[in-house]
Amino acid sequence: MDNVIYIATTHNCAANLAGEAYLLGQDHDHILYLWVNDPCIVLGRYQNPFSECNLEAMERNQVQLVRRQSGGGAVYHDQGNLCFTFVGKKDEATKEDNFRIVLDALASLGLKGELSGRNDIVLDGKKISGNAFQTTKDKFCHHGTLLIKSDLSVMGNYLTPSNSKLTSKAVKSVASRVGNLQQAYPEITMQEVQDAFISAFCKVYGTTPITEIDFLHFAQAQDNYQLFGNRETILEKTPPFTHSLSNRFSWGEATLHLEVKQGTIQAARVYSDCLDTTLVPQIERKLEGILYGKEALRALAENETEPRMQELLNFLAGEL
């Protein structure tokens, strides 16, 4: 059989996903691809970044926003997390065979993982691996994460930042209890886990050549980089959603309904007990057509001369 193993040398998640897309087009029987990312949030194909992520905190701390082509929920990656991808022929490869390799790799390290729920792997009752799948015309792609010694304490800084009511056509992540392999095996290293994966793969498919590859500078993967890692494209392609919120302002009580499409407020509806009947239509006109985000609203507020409008814009900027 024509089998290959690739190990990514870059930690740029968008580049590594572009590399995965490239591997999907290669004519091999079985591929194992191992990759590790710098801090990033990876969205499922149909998710809403505005409701899943604290975009301002991510930008402030240089946490990359990425959207993969498979389904599932939003996840946090860093260099304590190993990503793995299996690519095989659609009529031959199965997720059951792939899971067996993952579980065998863990067992070789003295760790007894178990399949659970929505294609997860748990260890001692905690989720250590989430998995998602993608099928093309002739290939089956199975990729997953394996938490080794990830900084779990920062996940809450970047995922689902508020309780604001968002009604969306996109999928909401399912919260899960997660844990690291390090909790069961304190001395574990990334290299040990990678070696265990390779050994388990070769045990099934035979001795396989290993290639290290930098997909950030790999010409054949460049076309796909923007698809996965261009922040503006990701925000623009978010499915339409509405954001509803209420507040008592100095000029009265108001409830706002914002209709957002392609990262822009397409329509704004305001319900208020404000005595000035000219204010509500002014607010609606002001909001329509602007970018849905803190920076755009703050910039608008800074240039606003009408105090009541400025108060509302600053409130919205603080809520997003």
Rank of each mutant, 00 (worst) to 15 (best):
Q282M: 12
D78G: 10
A57P: 09
Q262R: 13
S150I: 03
G25S: 08
G25Y: 06
L313V: 11
P49I: 14
L65M: 08
E253I: 14
A105C: 12
V154N: 01
N224P: 00
Y225T: 05
E92A: 08
H28C: 09
Q134N: 15
P240N: 02
G289Y: 03
G72H: 02
I283M: 07
V87Y: 02
F249C: 10
N12L: 02
G318C: 08
A21V: 12
S244Y: 03
I41E: 05
R68L: 11
Y271A: 15
G179D: 09
L111W: 12
K127W: 09
L256H: 04
T145Y: 07
V280I: 15
K286L: 09
D124H: 10
R298E: 15
E187S: 13
F99M: 11
L43T: 15
S70C: 11
E304F: 04
I234H: 00
Q26A: 08
F140E: 03
F249E: 07
L245D: 07
G130K: 09
L82S: 07
R67C: 10
D214W: 03
D214F: 05
L106K: 09
L23R: 07
Y6R: 04
L159N: 06
I265G: 03
E92T: 08
F215D: 01
Q226D: 05
D2R: 08
A219Q: 14
I290R: 01
N16L: 02
E304A: 08
K172N: 11
N61S: 11
D124V: 06
I210H: 00
G110I: 14
N54P: 11
T135I: 14
G110C: 12
G19D: 05
R231L: 00
L147G: 03
G130I: 11
V42R: 07
E20Y: 06
